[in-house]
Design a protein around this nucleic acid. Structure first.
Ligand SMILES: [Mn+2]
Ligand SMILES: [Mn+2]
Ligand SMILES: [Mn+2]
Ligand SMILES: [Mn+2]
Lengths: 222, 222
DNA sequence: CTTAAAATTTAGTCTTGCCTAAATTATTTT
DNA sequence: AAAATAATTTAGGCAAGACTAAATTTTAAG
């Protein structure tokens, strides 16, 4: 019984990986929302992934789902494809960081391991994608991430933007226009405990950012 | 009723295009062989393509199938993707002409029109792929091909290789090793009417080529 | 502790695209 | 022209993956 790695399977495993990064199992509903598939269908698929030999996920009714080591490796394979592709589309075809996600989302399932190696080599084995997200290594390990959400900073703290965990093109274009991109230095000057807004200085300009933005930007504190 | 353009649909249309280039309808069996799908299944799919609104193919029981203008445009779209991708994989990632076909076969179905435009521009809007095959134009017209099969040449005729109509990696590697690639000058020195072998001089070397090879190489007679 | 709300699962369908086996039609041979 | 062979179509099924509606379980409220 070789494992059937369909597009669908790959998307499930990728989303489960992302949802379980926090350490908790992924719930049926969350998974359904992320995949844009009805919860009832997700239950069915998750049961199948758990019944696979070897199992790709561990599943306990009403308790959510986690990846087995096999499932995790498969997820990291797809994530590596995705992030290498994004990097490559930006570097060689002039895509903007707002546009790459959608294209990579389709390509990630069809490229060969040879293709993966070729673009990785052509790019000089990059460690981060255009959004600053870490790229799983060739032997499928995810480097440790030691960044902090911008939302947890307080006035007088300075930091460097490391990564932006967002795919929405509109949000990404907005951040681009504010200069909030990986590598940029920022300083927090104000904090409002009522709405959790942060005032963030980028170069000369100061911007007031809500939680919707500050929880998606991860920084290294200086 | 918008047309459903699945991978499967695209592969059928592409093969039908290729099989009907000679002017005759494509038979169920030929299509089944090319697609590696059982004839019974092909009949079913062809009936569906004909019932689509607007129809993608014209189909008459036991008489084979041809493309409608709509189906032809869809086929040329896929073929343009395929050939641009091949060109691009060879030029930017160092693929050999023997390796590109398989990768392009999967990518052709998932790239966006934006991606198509970007690689076409990056390559300088090429007119031929690595095998010398003509690339359909952006407005989906196939340039006219005025080449002659090498098999029809006779002793003392000289020609330039224009294109090689083959996907088999082993054959392509073989031709590569003989120096039989697009742009190369050749001269026919001998012909055997018994086995239809041609002796073809490439530079200093002479090679005796059978019909299996000479019908797949297309040349421009000098 | 009981009830209402929310989350999840089960049961039953549907579509796509393929397959096998059997029936039919077309083409060759004799 | 009949028989044999080849090509094609029909009929019936199956697996993947999705959906809706109904049942169940868990969680939150009162
Ligand atoms: Mn995907
Ligand atoms: Mn990314
Ligand atoms: Mn294909
Ligand atoms: Mn080609």
């Amino acid at each position: 019984m070789p494992i059937t790695m369909t597009r669908s399977t790959q998307d499930y495993l990728k989303r489960i990986y992302e949802l379980t990064e926090c350490g908790l199992p992924a719930s049926t509903n969350d998974l359904a929302r992320e995949l844009d598939i009805k919860p009832a269908s997700v239950t069915g698929m998750v049961q199948k992934l758990a019944a696979e030999e070897p199992a790709l996920v561990e599943y306990h009714k009403h308790q959510g789902v986690t990846l087995t080591p096999t499932g995790k490796r498969a997820a990291l394979e797809v994530i590596r494809h995705h992030r290498l592709l994004e990097t490559w589309l930006v570097q060689t075809l002039g895509y903007s960081w707002a546009e790459v996600h959608e294209e990579a989302e389709r390509l990630e399932h069809v490229i060969s391991e040879d293709f993966e190696r070729r673009i990785a080599a052509a790019l000089g084995n990059p460690t981060r994608d255009p959004h600053g997200e870490l790229i799983p290594t060739e032997d499928l390990n995810m480097p440790v991430d030691d960044t902090t959400p911008l939302s947890s900073l307080r006035p007088n703290q300075s930091a460097t933007i490391q990564r932006v965990n967002a795919q929405d093109p509109n949000l990404l274009r907005h951040l681009d226009s504010l200069g909030l991109t990986p590598g940029i230095q920022i300083e927090v000057t104000e904090y409002s405990s009522f709405d959790n807004n942060l005032t963030v200085k980028v170069g000369q300009k100061a911007n007031v950012l809500g939680l919707n933005i500050t929880t998606k930007i991860f920084v290294e504190i200086k």
